[in-house]
Nucleic acid binder design. Structure first.
Ligand SMILES: [Mn+2]
Ligand SMILES: [Mn+2]
Ligand SMILES: [Zn+2]
Ligand SMILES: [Zn+2]
Lengths: 145, 145
DNA sequence: ACTGATATTGAGACTCAATATCAATTACAA
DNA sequence: TTGTAATTGATATTGAGTCTCAATATCAGT
């Protein structure tokens, strides 16, 4: 049993919620993919495996996984939210190629420090930072646009 | 005549496009507001003044102003894009209060430097950076959530 | 193992932002 | 002034995400 499943079960218990076969399947599926699927993409894939699953359940479960710190939601500038693994993954940021969609991840304690400094300066209590660089990846720089 | 209007006219000429009364009105309206309106908000306000104006025209014109470097588009995490003045405005970033929506703007050459360093390290040609801190503003910290 | 209160599910309707279509209108170079 | 190419706007459509609510599943307490 993956650790994430224990985490989920613990979270559910703590909140008087119930473990269900749907939640189990969605979690399994989510953990199998390494990166950045949108809820609808997951929904259509899951539908192939389990035709009776509902779209609302997928959306609800992804929110649940986010609250349980198993997933986190990122916005990559296409019109869809995407989810990635959070449990035991370092907090990181993204370079995004506007041409081919390539994603590069990186960590930066400088960004984390900036977050603190700037927040302090403005009496702001920070929760969540987003830092993304859009541009062209190495390959795509060869082409015109 | 505001400078932005000359810029727009120049941009249109260069691209074999035409100046129209709608574009003129939308630009005027956009320049009057200091900040961060969504296209639909602008559409409904403009509709009051000029009932015959079309929603598609507002969307199209805001894209046009963006291409002409008069406006820039920002995403503040509610489900709508928003536009702010770009011409003669310094490039800046945002602190966003998750509770009341308050917006604080700030500039940071450290962020600009990070953009360059990180991009270089990954052979990435950067175009556009987004940096946003979500959290609670001073007032909202007093309340529970 | 059973039971009942309660949490969950899922089909389908709905919302909201944004885009596409296309006939009618308008701008402007020549 | 005129011809043509760009623009407009009413309307339909898309697509992500949420809501509703009757039917179903879970699980704590016995
Ligand atoms: Mn990532
Ligand atoms: Mn701003
Ligand atoms: Zn690329
Ligand atoms: Zn606030």
């Amino acid at each position: 049993m993956p650790k994430e499943k224990s985490v989920l079960i613990g979270f559910l218990k703590k909140n008087k919620m119930k473990m269900t076969s749907q939640r189990d399947k969605i979690l399994d599926f989510f953990l199998k993919w390494e990166k950045h699927l949108s809820p609808d993409e997951m929904y259509y894939e899951l539908k192939k495996l389990y035709p009776r699953i509902g779209r609302a359940t997928v959306y609800r479960t992804l929110k649940l996984l986010t609250k349980a710190n198993i997933a986190s939601q990122v916005e990559l500038g296409d019109g869809a939210s995407r989810f990635e693994h959070k449990y035991n993954h370092p907090h990181h940021y993204h370079l995004i190629c506007s041409r081919c969609g390539k994603l590069i991840e990186f960590v930066s304690d400088k960004i984390d420090a900036l977050k603190k400094n700037i927040s302090k300066k403005h009496s702001f209590l920070p929760n969540n930072v987003r830092f993304e660089i859009f541009g062209l990846c190495k390959k795509c720089q060869k082409y015109r646009n």
